[in-house]
Amino acid sequence: MTATVRIPTILRPAVGGDAEVEAAGSTVGEALRAVGDAHPPFASLVFERDGSLKRYLAVFVDGRDARHLRGLDTPVGPGAEILVLPAASGGAG
């Protein structure tokens, strides 16, 4: 199964600058690990050493917060869209 992982601009350097990356996997974790395997800097931004999701990130699967579904075990269907989103601090102050 292939999902589309959308990458916000500040994380794009970790995946070679792409706004979207196609990733194979049947769960959120598998898809994100597939991106991390292809782009190791991405893996270190997204995963803790124990393989859990970093707590500064929100991950949305087809518009819903995966942390409150089944986390990295949340299943992804074909054509699913995953957004990895860090909190942003800028208030343009």
Binding site: I10, L11, L45, K54, R55, Y56, L57, A58, D65, P86, A87, A88, S89
Partner: peptide, 11 residues
């Protein structure tokens, strides 16, 4: 939504 802020340098 965001339990922690990003580590320095990420955001």
């Amino acid at each position: 939504v965001f339990p922690e802020p990003p580590p320095p340098g990420v955001s």
